[in-house]
Every structure is written in structure tokens, then in C-alpha cells.
Design a protein around this nucleic acid. Structure first.
Lengths: 119, 119
DNA sequence: AGTCTGTATCGCCATATGGCGATACGGCAA
DNA sequence: TTGCCGTATCGCCATATGGCGATACAGACT
């Protein structure tokens, strides 16, 4: 029980844990990667499809996908010549949904205070 | 209904929405900021306390806190000479808890497969 | 074999960002 | 007023990273 992670009230995180968490969040911290994930939420897609749908270059999409793959968020399955990508970690959906919901609430709040504070 | 946002099954996100989401995630994508948030999860703290507890410089802590404040995640209340900081958005706890849980599962899985795959 | 297609990777550049020391600001004390 | 304390901000540097074009690679087709 001498672990530094006291599971009682305060859960202090170790440096390495912080790095790991930060890395995961960093994977979600780029609009293009979020776009790719958002596209993949609609179902599996080949890299080529993602390139076309995202409007970005093939090189960039490939690079972003590699990062998402390294982060364990996206999986890849070969199918003929193509690489079929899919969301490998359901936490992606949860995190994005949560963040979207929060943003929506916030925007509604802002709109309301704007409307009431116009005078 | 010719909008690119087909509201049926798939929820396509606009560019600005993606930017906003990415910005929020980016605020969580740095170990030092995660450390500050982790410290604040134990309760309100002055900037000075955070400087000491984090082991970072006063300038850096201040800069990170400013970013977290801009992201709406941390609030500040003046108390005498000091600035007392607190977590302003409960989503911080949810997101971090979720991510920590996920990492723990993952590490346990890795340990298990490592143990069984040693041969 | 050669060729084409789909992806991955490389080199480069521009920008963004973290950390540092120094300094400025704002409020309290004497 | 002067001086001190707690924070915020500035300038600088080093690194990391996104986007781009070019290229390498791997598998399928002829």
C-alpha cells in the first residue's frame, strides 16, 4: 500500500502518467485529426476516402493517421491495396461527445447573456 | 437540406467547431497544465502554492494558468495580494478521470499480454 | 518483367509553444 | 512617498509540429 497513488481522496499523478495523459489529449488537440476521427465515427474509411473527405493532402492525412494509430485511437486493416481505418478506442467518441456537449452549453449560455446584456 | 451537415445519423462538425474543440483539448495536452489541474482538484490554491507544489517557475505557472483561464477551465479569485485558483469547469475532472481510467485499463492489458506472451 | 495504385515517409519551411531570466504592474506596509 | 510581495508579462531561445512537394515502398494487374 505504499504506492504513491493513494486512491482515497487525493490522487496525485506521477510525471510519467501526466506525460501519457498529455500525449493522449495532444492527439485530440488538432482540428484535422478531429476531422478524421469525426469522419471515422460514421464508419470505416480507407485512407484515400479520408484524404478526399478531409480536403487535406495525402501526406498529411497519412501522418495524422499514424499519430492517431500510435495513440491507440485508430486501427488499420489492410484490404487489397487500401488501408481501412476505424476508431479503435471508444473513448474517442465519449471524449468528443462530452466536449461537444460542453461547447454547446457554453455557446447557448453566451448567447443568452449576450441577449440579456445588450442594453 | 443541401448543407454538408447531414443531421441524420452522422454529426459532421464545422471547421470552427473543430477548432474550438481542438483548443480545449490542447489546453489539456501539456503535462504541466495537467499537474496544475491535478493540484487544483484537491482544492483551491494560490498561484504561489501552485508554483511551489508544481516545482516549476513562477512565470511558467502564470502562463499556463492564463491559458487554462482562457480555456474556461480555471477560475481566479483575488484574495488580498494573492490570486486563488480553482477548477471552473467540471468537465476537467470528468475528462481526466476518464483518461486515467482508460490508461489504467490499457496498462493492465499490456502487463497481462506481456506476462502471457513471454515465451 | 513492367506498370499503376494506394500509402508511407522524407526534407524542408513556417509557425507555435514551453521554459528561462528579467522586468513591469498592483496592492499592502511602514 | 518608498519599499516589498505576489503575479503578470516580456524577450529570447530551443524544440516540436503542421503543411507541402517529392519520393519510396508494397501490392495488384498485364
Amino acid at each position: 500500500m505504499s504506492s504513491k497513488n493513494s486512491t482515497s481522496v487525493s490522487k496525485q499523478l506521477s510525471d510519467t502518467a501526466l506525460e501519457l495523459i498529455a500525449t493522449r489529449f495532444r492527439a485530440l488537440a488538432e482540428p484535422m485529426r478531429l476531422r478524421l476521427l469525426n469522419l471515422l465515427m460514421q464508419g470505416e474509411q480507407t485512407v484515400g476516402q479520408l484524404v478526399e473527405a478531409s480536403g487535406s493532402s495525402q501526406a498529411n492525412v497519412s501522418k495524422h493517421l499514424a499519430l492517431l494509430r500510435d495513440a491507440g485511437m485508430v486501427g488499420v486493416r489492410k484490404e487489397g491495396l487500401s488501408s481501412v481505418c476505424f476508431i479503435a478506442d471508444p473513448i474517442v467518441n465519449e471524449l468528443c461527445d462530452m466536449m461537444c456537449r460542453r461547447l454547446r452549453e457554453e455557446m447557448e449560455g453566451k448567447a443568452k447573456s449576450l441577449a440579456s446584456g445588450l442594453g
